[in-house]
């Protein structure tokens, strides 16, 4: 049994999402190979070779993979992965974009967002925004899936010494051209992997209030900033701050929800956090049902106080 893990990266650095994906592969047992497809991404292949538990790195260097376009990635994964028992990618926007396409090319039914592996063919995944967990037995081989990164503890980035092998490109499909990317720049920790997240909701009322009230708190706690969909839609913060069923899935040590009602779609993205704090002026807000510590208060009073109390 060998398992292929598709690495997420930006051609310079291995993305942290790859680490729990390798961890998920380890629970299956068997040789783990990591595919690094990129353009001038030798440094990434190097980093992947050091991951704990990796037996081999397959490195495909071609301009076709510079932007991880789904058409090109899927063609490569289908070509390189056909003889593996399992193919895993992180359940990020990266993995979700090409994995189902690659599976269709191989006539396989993939699984999305796997949160637990019970046997070589038995997997658990959330459905209905995390309200119902399905345990499924998958008949196809290779078994192709994306892994919910918060559900597996990342492997160590040191200790491995896998061989790096060059693997032939599957070529440029020519279907799609890359125009550009607008990435939000931030000095803060990455939302998906931060150990503390401070999130604001509609109640903040404006982008200025996010700056004035949420940012200083996040600075003091070394936290990433998140938001509800309502806050994003109102334009208080960029869309990639959204936590939830259709935004980011986070599971920090501490999640602080401020002026967020706790709609099921929001809970779907943060319910697995270790400690949840909610500040909301409505004592019946559903967010309190998942909060370890709830404070019924007006955020415009509570946040300045909190800022002071943290010193």
């Amino acid at each position: 049994m060998s398992i292929l893990v598709i690495a997420e990266h930006d051609n310079a650095t291995l993305n942290a999402s790859t680490l729990p994906t390798v961890a998920a592969a380890k629970t299956l047992g068997g040789d783990i190979h990591v595919l690094v497809a990129g353009s001038g991404a030798a440094a990434v292949a190097e980093q992947a070779s050091k991951l704990d538990g990796v037996a081999k790195v397959l490195h495909t260097d071609d301009a076709a993979y510079e932007h991880a376009l789904a058409e090109n990635m899927a063609a490569l994964v289908a070509k390189v992965g056909a003889d593996y028992s399992h193919i895993l990618a992180p359940a990020t926007f990266f993995g979700k974009n090409f994995m189902p396409r690659a599976a269709a090319l191989l006539d396989k039914q993939p699984l999305s967002d796997v949160t637990a592996i019970e046997a070589e063919d038995t997997f658990v995944r959330p459905t209905y925004a995390g309200n119902a967990f399905k345990t499924v037995q998958l008949g196809d081989t290779p078994k192709m899936m994306t892994i919910r990164t918060t559900a597996f503890d990342p492997v160590a980035t040191e200790g491995g010494s896998a061989a790096i092998e060059n693997t032939e490109s599957a070529g440029e499909t020519g279907l799609t051209g890359f125009v550009g990317r607008e990435l939000s720049k931030s000095e803060r920790p990455d939302l998906a992997t931060a150990s503390v997240v401070v999130s604001g909701g509609r109640a903040l009322g404006s982008g200025e209030n996010f700056e004035k009230l949420i940012e200083p708190l996040a600075d003091k706690l070394g936290a990433a900033i998140g938001a509800s969909r309502a806050a994003v839609d109102a334009g208080y913060v960029p869309n990639d701050y959204q936590v939830g069923q259709t935004g980011k899935i986070v599971a920090p040590n501490l999640y602080i929800a401020i002026g967020i009602s706790g709609a099921i779609q929001h809970l779907a993205g943060m319910k697995d956090s270790k400690v949840i704090v909610a500040i909301n002026k409505d004592e019946d807000a559903p967010i309190f049902q998942v909060a370890d510590y709830g404070l019924v208060a007006d955020l415009f009073d509570a946040l300045p106080e909190l800022d002071k109390a943290l010193g």
Binding site: T135, Q137, G139, D272, V290, Y293, L295, A302, A309
Partner: peptide
């Protein structure tokens, strides 16, 4: 291509507490 073996509730969280003030929090 897959068979559903079981559909279960999400893992439950243990009940939390309300705190009375920012200091207590």
């Amino acid at each position: 291509r897959y068979k559903t073996l079981k559909v279960s509730d999400p893992p439950a969280r243990k009940p939390g507490v309300k705190v009375g003030s920012v200091e207590e929090l």
